[in-house]
């Protein structure tokens, strides 16, 4: 089949693609969106094997030698492994490394204040795939606004180790950084990614079992994974101009129906929302299991 056959469809393209590409390339909006994404959301973390404490210490030592003006290393409680390292580069920028396991931020906050940067760091226990991410806010800007002068990223490729770059020359306001850390045993998650996303406890299960994902099929696998389910059954829908809302009711039994979403409450508990069999859902209500397209690798985990 030759694409000339699609010429008629091209004639009704609602967008002039070439023109959009040109306008987009030269617009400030393209750069602004890039900045908004890379500065306000999660830093990229390369998913490699976690380094041993010994190697982590070696890395911190190397960085300390490389620091040009000042380097300070905090210690993990009861260990001689640096939990983080703070240093100021020649250009004045402050670089902070190794903060993913930082549960007690008071030392780091104090050191940053000595550099003239007023930071409040709030560790948030999160589900596995979110560990190491961070979110920054200021009183002036409010939540989800990019904070000028602060960059997350620049990690060396190891999960659990990453770098913040804070430029005190452009940084003025008091800043709050929510740091997503690994939860302690039994600790609940403040924030969870959908449980079927890669890196989560049931990541990719929907790729192996196929969708719609039946609650019973998932339930049969939970005990071998050391997981307990909290089931919520959808009981009513209300459609409005902006889509709609729905209500749920807890269920002690595994419901008959398809899972439309799931997220981990803590390391051992997952809450699922289930659309009962026989219910005709409205158009706006579709399963939301993962934003990542399925791959063979994801499915292979469950073979």
């Amino acid at each position: 089949m030759h694409d000339d056959e699609f010429r008629d469809i091209r004639t009704i393209d609602p967008i002039e693609g070439d023109r959009l590409a040109e306008e987009w390339a030269s617009s400030g909006a393209k750069h602004a969106l890039f900045q908004a994404i890379t500065m306000s959301d999660a830093p990229p973390l390369r998913k490699l094997h976690r380094r041993s404490p010994k190697r982590l210490a070696a890395l911190a030592a190397t960085l300390a030698v490389a620091a040009t003006a000042l380097a300070v290393a905090g210690l993990l409680p009861g260990a001689d492994t640096p939990a983080y390292a703070v240093r100021q580069l020649e250009n004045g920028v402050i670089q902070i490394e190794n903060v993913a396991d930082l549960h007690d931020p008071s030392g780091l906050e104090k050191e940053l204040r000595e550099f003239g940067v007023d930071v409040q760091i709030v560790p948030r226990p999160v589900s596995p795939s979110m560990v190491g991410q961070a979110r920054a806010t200021t009183d002036a800007l409010g939540e989800d606004e990019p904070v000028e002068g602060l960059t997350f990223g620049g990690n060396d490729g190891t999960k659990g180790v990453f770098t913040w770059m804070i430029d005190p020359r452009v940084f003025r306001d008091r800043i709050t950084i929510e740091l997503y850390v690994q939860a302690d045993q039994g600790e609940g998650y403040d924030v969870s990614e959908e449980v079927f996303e890669p890196g989560e406890v049931l990541g990719g299960l929907q790729c192996a079992l196929g969708e719609p994902l039946q609650a019973a099929d998932v339930a049969s696998r939970l005990s071998s994974l050391g997981l307990t389910a909290q089931w919520e059954v959808l009981t009513a829908f209300e459609t409005d101009s902006d889509g709609g809302t729905y209500t749920t009711q807890p269920s002690a039994e595994v419901p008959n129906g398809q899972i439309i979403s799931g997220y981990a409450v803590d390391g051992h508990t997952v809450r699922f929302e289930v659309l009962p069999d026989g219910q005709a859902p409205p158009d706006w209500l579709k399963p939301r299991l993962s934003d990542i397209p399925c791959s063979k690798e994801q499915a292979a985990r469950w073979k």
Binding site: E16, E23, S27, A29
Partner: peptide, 25 residues
């Protein structure tokens, strides 16, 4: 298209600027 379940990804000003680019095409 799932209505209430979506979240706003952008602030109003940036969304408007990007929308302006789209509208030209």
């Amino acid at each position: 298209h799932r209505g209430k379940r979506r979240r706003r990804a952008l602030d109003e000003r940036l969304a408007s600027n990007i929308a302006g680019v789209i509208d030209t095409a």
